[in-house]
Design a protein around this nucleic acid. Structure first.
Lengths: 65, 65
DNA sequence: ATAATATGTCAAGTATATTTTACTTTATAT
DNA sequence: ATATAAAGTAAAATATACTTGACATATTAT
C-alpha cells in the first residue's frame, strides 16, 4: 500500500525525494521506500517528514477506520 | 522524554503493560520502553498501540509546536 | 508477613530499518 | 537526439528496534 499522501504533500512543496531526504536527514532511498509503502519506518522519521512537509502524523500516516 | 499519554490512555482502559503488549503483539518490555520514551518505535507499532487504546497518532505521539 | 500482580531495568540475541553503492528507467529540457 | 534531474529498485553492510530471560522493586490484597 503506497503512501500517496507523503508524495502529494511533497509535490505541494515542490520538493524532490532528494530534497526531502536532505531536509529530514536520511537517504533518498529511505524516502522512496516510505512512499512505496511496503515498509515500516520509525516514528521519529515519520515525525521529521511531517515537520518538513507542514503536516501532522494523522494527516500523513493515520488510516481512518 | 517519557510518553505519559500512552500511560494515561492505558490506565483509562484499565490495562496493564502486559495486557497492552498482548493486545498489540509485542513484549511487555517493548511497551515499557515506549512509555519510558528514550526510544524510537516503528510507526506500525505506534498505530497498533493507538488502535488498542482507541486513540490516534496525533493524540498519543504528536508534539505540537 | 506473605503472596500475587505490576512495573522498571539489564544483557545477549534476533529481526529489521536505514545506508551505501550502483544500475535502470522516466520525464523534462536543450 | 542527447543531456540532466528525478524516480524506481536491488544487494550488501551497519545501526537499531524488539525479544527473551532474568532479577529487583513497588503495590495491593489476603
Amino acid at each position: 500500500m503506497k503512501n500517496l499522501r507523503v508524495k502529494a504533500a511533497r509535490a505541494a512543496k515542490d520538493m524532490s525525494q532528494d530534497d526531502l531526504a536532505k531536509a529530514v536527514g536520511v537517504s533518498r532511498q529511505t524516502i522512496n521506500a516510505v512512499e512505496k509503502g511496503d515498509y515500516n519506518p520509525t516514528i521519529n522519521l515519520c515525525i521529521s517528514i511531517c515537520r518538513a512537509l507542514d503536516k501532522t502524523l494523522d494527516e500523513l500516516f493515520w488510516e481512518n477506520e
